[in-house]
Design a protein around this nucleic acid. Sequence first.
RNA 1: GGGCGCUUAGCUCAGCCCGGUUAGAGCGUCUCCCUUACAAGGAGAAGGCCGGGGGUUCGAAUCCCUCAGCGCCCACCA
Length: 845
Amino acid sequence: MDVPEKPSLDGLEAKWGEWWEAAGTYRFDRTRSREEIYAIDTPPPTVSGSLHLGHVESYTHTDLMARFKRMRGYEVFYPIGWDDNGLPTERRVQNYFGVRCDPMLPHDPNLDVAALERPSEEPVAVSRGNFIELCERLTAEDERAFEDLFRKLGASVDWTQMYTTIGDRSRRISQVGFLRLVRKGLAYKAEAPTLWDVDFRTAVAQAEIEDREVDGAYHRVTFAREGGGTLEIETSRPELIPACVALVAHPDDERYAPLVGTTAITPLFRVPVPVVAHELADPEKGTGIAMICTFGDVTDVTWWRELKLPARVVVRRDGTLAPGRFGEPGWESLDPGAANAAMAELAGKASKQARRRITELLREDRALVGEPEPVRHVVKFYEKGDRPLEVISSRQWFVEILRFKQELLGRGREIAWHPGFMGARFASWVEGLNQDWAISRQRYFGVPFPVWYRLDATGEPDLDDPILADEATLPIDPQADVPPGFEPGQRDVPGGFTGDPDIMDTWATSSLTPQIAAKWEEDPDLFARLFPMDLRPQAHDIIRTWLFYTVYRAHVEHDSIPWTNAAISGFVLDPDRKKMSKSKGNVVLPTEIFERHSADAVRYWAASARLGFDAAIDEQQIKVGRRLAIKILNASRFALTMAAEPTAVIEPLDRAMLATLRGVLAEATEAFEAYEHARALAVLERFFWGFTDDYLELVKPRAYSGGAAAGSAVAALRTALDVLLRAFAPFLPYVTEEVWSWWREGSVHRAAWPLAEHLTDADGADPEVYDVAALVLGAVRKEKALAHVSLRVPATLVTVRDTTERLGKLAMATEDVRLAGNVEELRTAEAPEPGVEVVLGTTPD
RNA sequence: GGGCGCUUAGCUCAGCCCGGUUAGAGCGUCUCCCUUACAAGGAGAAGGCCGGGGGUUCGAAUCCCUCAGCGCCCACCA
């Protein structure tokens, strides 16, 4: 036994972090069978940014389950990954180094990175290869900082199971997964209108869209009718009038029914367009008749597709308008000259400027009715973007998801959701899906498509019959590697080949994290021991992306759910309950909090938050955690430094305390099994404070006294301490390991979780003895507090009134109560109403 | 507009599934106490028509209906 004189929390993180690493405490043993393993699909955090307390909270939740299951006897597979591919990294690299990627430039092997770190005013253009090198360089730095924080937090991950989403294995598995989709006929390349970010110049998927309210204006515009007359439409995007291909009204709308089938003429551009009917047209909106443009929004796409309308696209990929082509086939106009002149006024302008200019043109042309009416309306944005999305037709890889809706809803019902209502979030997302998954991105730092295209004699690619890479050669980069049967010199020359220039959506990789961590198609034995996994922990904001796509991939590839449990954490809000964001400057740095309060204290706060509910940062609560950790140190010191030798636990009070603890353990275990870590912590904590305030005070005099009765107290204290340390271990891994090391062998984190049935010393004991004793002691303390006297002041006479039964229980602990309360005479009287009367003496000396 | 969640002490939250003592905890506030594990501590007090309204029941924070407020997800770009 080696109990320090003055125990402290300082330095415990470093001390035990190193010890665990050296001892391999959390190392995964792959020889165990599937039934013995608990596998966690750990979220790989995005490394291109800083960690905040939200990470700390949700990773603590995961770690609690990992530690609990480990102590329950499972071999826990708890890997860690870093999500370093994708746009966030590119954006950070652009800002950090002051560069932009120009795929046309050749690779520069001697790029002066030091010069780049002092960004000049103009971004320096670098080659794709150099750009990717810079991405790798920066993410490597970020990953070191992340690892440091995860270690400090005490996340019991197996660091030998680390992966990155841009690493070889992730790229290989992403590419294998993609080729399998192609072979199953589930991935297809198609020219289709897609949501498009004009700044990032890439397609984005439905799952990455968010709505934002912005200022706009309704413009009422007059269209002429063929054969005379006019009609009016309302639009917030008049700059798309040149892309108008039809007008649409609801089929039941009597106002417009006579017009359906007739032709209208667009203002300025003089293009004849049909008036058509469709149920999506809302008679309540605007004038009840709308223009269909190619493409103003996703409703336009639906109309265009279902009504088989032609396309006249005017918005280019950078968001500016194209010059006019009126007069050409498909661009009919009654006055091509005027139409192209009008278009020339708009060409090269982005939407906003074009809108302003066309409003003036419409006004001059007397086609504008009244003035534009300002309005706040909701517009779709890419979640990482700054300008509204356009709908642009481009050739993209799509993955079929729509036809799996019903099956995926079924998969959702197979998963146990924690909390349960999160399953409804998943279902409502699946039900609302309306597009296949656009999986290609026109970006650079990501997993490329393992695909090339043959070039014909004129140098045009044959896009319909791609050359797929051989799975055995993956991962490959079609920009660097050569397809089978070709020579490097044939790249991009007629009769040769060209590589697919796109990369995959970052979720195309992330949706395979179970397969990546379990080494799918690389280590079949390991994969069979891990998949499907047991737990997916994550936050609720990415149910529609990470969670949904993972379920989809497992369904189509493995005909299975990817894991049996999904534990969904809420968000961490700042102390004013606002969502944290860097721009508000309210991000609290985790490292400072750890420094100030200790990792155990921060974990305590995180563990107090239930799954699925938002939690506010509460430094007071963190301080409470710190106090609990310190209390554990001191109470342990007391229990372990008693002079008396432990004997059998025979005293009724000691046995009653253990009986109470037994009930607490049963509840904590049940709560943990149900993924309710906060309840488990709460019941343990309540018992523990009572244990220190009441039980320790009650037995202190006896424990110091010597003899068999002292031995019983010391034995009970140690039994309780042993059990409490193990029960608190998932929550407070540092302080429990510290105390465990004073008197136990090995790591507490590899000890068995304490179960109620193991506390045999409590067999047949009555927990109420403990209750009654604590109650009387409390009453004595209350009298002394109300009298404003020291607890040392003796109570000359205490009379306890209660039922015969309860007085009998008190009798079993009379001496303990008398000594702890400094009571000279303790009398009892039978009474229907319980009560304690206290007569105080005077202060000694 | 649809779905989900929340509403209990000044604050943060338990309790509600499975109805039953005077509704709990922590923080904060106030009062007191240096007591040989702990002053980075301890003891105690005050503080609540359990969001509103109906109903079921001997009995409702708890079950049912309804309304309101807040939050999130989805739909909504004319």
